[in-house]
Design a binder for these strands. Structure first.
Length: 1064
RNA sequence: GGGCCUGUAGCUCAGUCGGUUAGAGCGCACCCCUGAUAAGGGUGAGGUCGCAAGUUCGAUUCUUGCCAGGCCCA
């Protein structure tokens, strides 16, 4: 910003803005003046003030921010800025998600230490220290990005999930759930990552592209049934599996009780049982020669249930209740044989069904995904590596494998290690989400979701089907499960701790770090063991990091150990925003904990935005480089343009949005939004400074255009307020954009001359004050949407104030414009908008007839209904379309023909079916108007209100219809010598202005002018000489013969110009 | 297989509580204006509103089915 001089009250504003440059200057000024801090502190806190609670979702900081973070970040800034201006106190603390698999995996890679054993050898303490450093590695870069994008957030008072206070709140939550009976421990089949050596929650395996295609072997194997009397011979039953490695753990087979099964005689005479529905699929294996399969017996699944068979591996032979056929409802015949092989240690259905049948499960696979010693033939092999070995082994047995094929399917992978997951029975702690389902759904109804269909759709459905949430991880870097247990089952005891005080009370030490391994060192004798031998030891697991981020609403405040009122009075938070996939991530975990702990929603309003894609609809990826580099965009185009680009897109309605690979879309924002605003500002300062005028906030102008633009601005304030109150950022942007058209393209353009300080005329302070008033209001409206540009403009308009405060004054410290600040004038707005349509029509007539606008015409005539409202605005129209007179005619039929437009909405209920006849007749012109104003058509009489009359221009007249056809615009295309002369004079003025520009003169410079004209032209120009002189600020004008060398052609005449700047 | 969302101009998207002539921006063509000027503006071409049936006097809009794409869940 250039400092205003004595006579200049505003900075000199270049018509071409350097947005990146001004953005960095403003950042410095905000920094120096602590503007963000002031914007919070100046708003009164409770009890008198109002609070708006924004909760910031914590990112992992072990990578750089990407576009998704930028988008979310902008939204996270727009809403709090708006609410701040509405008078609320909006504190914004950044948060960091520090724990969990991402951190551990990164550290494993960095240290070259992989796997549980290696980490234990390396030392859990050492490992966790490395994690602690690693997770904060990129916080500096994050801060840079966040600052650069004008996202105001407090980094100093940030929360970190690894802080002692935060973790204490987390274990408090755990204890609360425990006390409420919402936690339990179970040995259950879960998605398991052998890469990370830990179970995963059912939503982790659905993260992003964790599920993707994979090819696996599929094996159909035969199990020999123990014979019964009714058998036609020795039977075997065929089962199909895509996990051959689970066959050694097979303990049962499942059939569908309702399904029909057949016994087929195959090559060599063996009898095989499959579902009848599988015959076609297995035709080749079940046929003898070219004959179709020979069915020798038929039975139902119910008949088969209860029969026993011989295990194909003998590792677990003889186990109680095992190797039996069980009837189960989930069995289908789509894939496979209609017989399902059951390994209860490695399948969720398998476990459920077998447990019901009294079969105890076996899990001969260790934490790293390798077979244990139980499976002697494959011990030590990874299960996926063992697949081909198992197949080879079984094939060698001759009559076991019925078919071996490959199978392409979508298979879940570990989101961190990228290894294919397996299902495996493990010990884990669960939150009893299924007990809460009803309350989760009820409380969900209190949340305002944007877009709203998420509430009952994606989120509501997810809640309905939610399963118990596994919250323990067999890892190292995380909040510990605060559970201590007796190491002697003879003296069972479990203690759960919910605070550091409680721990200290029992262990006599006050922990200063709740992380492993320190927390594991806390051991004490089991009070229930009279012998004093057994000890209480902590269970080894740590908590799921989603449990920790879900605890953020209270844990960031160290609730309930501190800030009890602070949290309780502001739960739920007013606003959160993240991308839509968080319906099963952060949104979900916060909701579960909010309901479980407080029986309340965790947030009142939530925006779920969509995903950014490239122009081809692919995900943005570093490899493809299919997006513009954000830092480069900041430097070349600016952050405000990117902010607008993102927040005005359909992505905020939950849809995916495509972004160009270059920055063209963002540059377009500059052209369509930033430049118009900037040009208006630059225009204002140019003339206010030229006149040394200091404008003031003033809405009292009686000038029509002033009143129009004030009313339009009032409309903008209303629209933007409504949109932002509804968290509809895209609509807020749209309302600004359509307003800009009226401001720049109509008000400024039509008012330009009023800003020129023509000598002898008094300065039009109404115009300057009005434009100032409008601009200072617009600056406040766009403050959340374009914080830099708004700041620059507002600060320029209030340069004195900013200077007096040493740069401290800021648009972001202002109040949002009140709804009654500016006059509302609907009638005027309607009339003016109508007038603009008339002007368009008139200009199109000019173009059609090749009549340039500089050439004045005698008149324009408006004929038809509804034109009277623009009569008071005639001068503006005359000016815009350059005519001497605006005429209004009642005799519409002189220029056009009426067409009957029956009003279907009114007539429909009255006439029913006949409406269509009436409409048809009206279209054909088959109607008559009576003297009393009624219309008869197709045997019906239409009264006033039943119809409208449209006016179509007559052939051969220079006339154009308006939208809606209720009036026509007629242009008098007749030219006269005098009009031509005036047009020529205007052409000359234009030529001189161009020359002034080329001579690099200031708009206020006076000149002496020499016009070289031919004799005929001299005569034409003579009456307009004074006017020309005044238009081009010539204090002396002489008419001479043309200088042939420099002459140009103007309207068929040869003209030359010489001008010189006058010193005064 | 179920649920939700989307389908409107060459592209990106608004809109229509049902009314008979559906809008914007970009792109394209032509033109104008310029004391906001390496800007600005106007005009125009371009649409069977995914397809079909139903409800209705009337459907792009409501209902149902189908098709295509996306997301979520099995």
């Amino acid at each position: 910003m250039t400092n205003p001089s004595d006579s200049h009250h505003y900075p000199e504003v270049s018509s071409r803005a350097d947005f990146p440059g001004l953005e960095s200057k403003i950042l410095t000024r905000w920094e120096e003046n602590q503007t963000f801090n002031k914007s919070i502190e100046q708003r009164v806190d409770e009890p008198d003030g109002e609070r708006f609670v924004f909760n910031d979702g914590p990112p992992f900081a072990n990578g750089l921010p990407h576009y998704g973070h930028l988008l979310t970040g902008y939204v996270k800034d727009v809403v709090p800025r708006y609410q701040t201006m509405r008078g609320k106190r909006v504190e914004r603390n950044f948060g960091w998600d520090c724990h969990g698999l991402p951190a551990e995996m990164q550290t494993e890679k960095e240290l070259g230490v992989s796997g549980r054993k290696a980490i234990v050898d390396f030392g859990i303490g050492n490992f966790n220290n490395a994690c602690r450093e690693s997770v904060l590695r990129y916080t500096g870069e994050w801060e840079t990005y966040v600052n650069r994008m004008a996202r105001w957030v407090d980094f100093e008072n940030d929360y970190k999930t690894m802080n002692l206070d935060y973790m204490e709140s987390v274990i408090w939550a755990f204890k609360q759930l425990w006390d409420k009976g919402l936690l339990y421990e179970a040995h259950r089949v879960m998605p398991y990552s052998w890469g990370a050596e830990t179970p995963l929650s059912n939503f982790e395996i659905r993260l992003d592209d964790a599920t993707r295609p994979r090819q696996d072997p599929a094996l159909t194997v035969r199990f020999a049934l123990d014979p019964v009397a009714s058998d036609p011979g020795p039977l075997s039953i065929a089962a199909w599996t895509t996990t051959p490695w689970t066959l050694p753990s097979n303990l049962a087979l499942a059939v569908g009780p309702e399904i029909t099964y057949v016994v087929v005689k195959i090559e060599g005479g063996d009898l095989v049982v499959v579902a009848e529905a599988a015959l076609e699929n297995y035709e080749r294996e079940l046929s003898v020669g070219d004959e179709p399969p020979e069915v020798v017996a038929t039975m139902t699944g119910a008949d088969l249930a209860g029969r026993t068979y011989q295990p194909i591996f003998d590792y677990f032979a003889g186990r109680k209740n095992s190797f039996v056929i069980i009837g189960a409802d989930f069995v289908e015949t789509g894939d496979g044989t209609g017989v399902v092989h059951m390994a209860p240690g490695f399948g969720e259905d398998d476990q459920r069904v077998c447990e019901a049948a009294g079969i105890e499960l076996v899990v001969p696979v260790d934490e790293t995904g390798r077979f244990t010693e139980d499976v002697v033939d494959f011990a030590g092999q990874n299960v996926f590596d063992a697949n081909p070995e198992v197949i080879k082994f079984l094939k060698a047995r001759g009559n076991v494998v019925l078919r071996h094929e490959t199978y392409d399917h979508n298979y879940p992978h570990c989101w961190r290690t990228d290894t294919p997951i397996i299902y495996r029975a493990v010990n884990s702690w669960y939150v009893r989400v299924t007990d809460l389902t009803d309350r989760l759904l009820e409380v969900n109804n209190e949340i305002n979701w944007i877009p709203d269909h998420i509430q009952q759709g994606q989120f509501g459905r997810w809640l309905e089907g939610a399963r118990d949430w596994s919250i323990s991880r067999n890892r190292f870097w995380g909040a510990p499960l605060p559970v201590w247990r007796s190491d002697n089952p003879d003296f069972p005891r479990t203690d759960v701790y919910g605070s550091i005080d409680e721990i200290e009370a029992d262990f006599g030490v006050r922990p200063t770090d709740l992380h492993r391994p320190y927390i594991d060192d806390l051991v004490r004798p089991n009070p229930d063991d009279p012998s004093g031998q057994s000890m209480m030891r902590r269970v080894p697991e740590v908590l799921d990091c989603w449990f920790e981020s879900g605890s953020m609403p209270f844990a960031q405040h160290h609730y309930p150990f501190e800030n009890v009122n602070e949290f309780e009075q502001h739960n739920p938070a007013d606003f959160i925003v993240e991308y839509i996939a968080q319906t099963r991530g952060w949104f979900y975990t916060m909701h579960v904990l909010g309901v479980a702990l407080f029986d309340k929603p965790a947030f009142a309003n939530v925006i779920c935005h969509g995903v950014l894609l490239d122009a081809e609809g692919r995900k943005l990826s570093k490899k493809l480089r299919n997006y513009p580099d954000p830092l480069e965009v900041f430097e070349t185009v600016g952050s405000d343009a990117m902010r607008w680009y993102l927040i005005s897109s359909p992505i905020l309605r939950g849809l995916d949005t495509r972004i160009e690979a270059d920055d063209s879309g963002i540059r377009e924002v500059v052209r369509l939004v930033l430049n118009p605003i900037w040009n208006t500002y630059s225009f204002f300062t140019l003339y206010a400074n030229a006149d040394g005028y200091k404008a003031s906030f003033n809405t009292s102008s009686t000038n029509t255009l002033d009143r129009y633009v004030l009313a339009k601005t009032s409309e903008l304030v209303h629209n933007a307020t409504a949109a932002l109150d509804a968290y509809d950022l895209a609509t807020a942007c749209a309302s600004v954009q359509s307003y800009l058209d009226a401001l720049t393209n109509w008000y400024v353009r039509r008012s330009r001359e009023r800003f020129w300080n023509t000598s002898g005329e008094p300065l039009d302070t109404d115009a300057l004050d009005t434009l100032y008033t409008v601009l200072t209001t617009v600056a406040r409206v766009i403050a959340p949407l374009l914080p830099f540009v708004a700041e620059e403009i507002w600060s320029g308009l209030h340069a004195d104030e900013v200077e007096a405060s040493n740069g401290g004054a800021s648009v972001h410290l202002q109040d949002w414009p009140a709804l009654d600040e500016l006059p509302v004038d609907t009638d005027l707005v309607v009339a003016m908008d109508r007038l603009r349509e008339v002007a368009s029509a008139a200009l199109s007539l000019r173009e059609e007839r090749n009549l340039r606008v500089r050439l004045p015409l005698a008149s324009v005539t408006i004929a038809g209904v509804g034109s009277s409202i623009i009569e008071p605005l005639s001068d503006i129209l005359a000016d815009e379309v350059n005519v001497k007179q605006v005429l209004f005619s009642d005799d519409a039929e002189a220029f056009g023909a009426f067409r009957l437009k029956p009003n279907g909405r009114v007539l429909g209920p009255k006439l029913g079916k006949d409406v269509q006849t009436v409409i048809k007749a009206a279209k054909q012109g088959d109607w008559e108007m009576a003297d009393d104003g009624t219309v008869s058509v197709a045997g019906h009489t239409l009264a006033e209100g039943d119809f409208e009359l449209a006016l179509d221009p007559k052939e051969g007249v220079a006339a154009a219809g308006l939208r809606g056809n209720d009036a026509i615009v007629v242009l008098d295309t007749e030219t006269t010598e005098s009009l031509e002369a005036e047009g020529f004079a205007r052409d000359l003025v234009r030529l001189v202005q161009q020359a002034r520009k080329e001579a690099d003169l200031d708009v206020t410079d006076r000149i002496s002018l020499s016009l070289g004209l031919e004799p005929e032209a001299k005569a034409v120009v003579a009456p307009h000489t004074d006017w020309i002189a005044s238009q081009v600020l010539a204090t002396a004008i002489e008419i001479v013969d043309p200088n042939e060398k420099s002459a140009t052609d103007v309207d068929g005449r040869s003209v030359s110009i010489e001008l010189a700047k006058r010193s005064n």
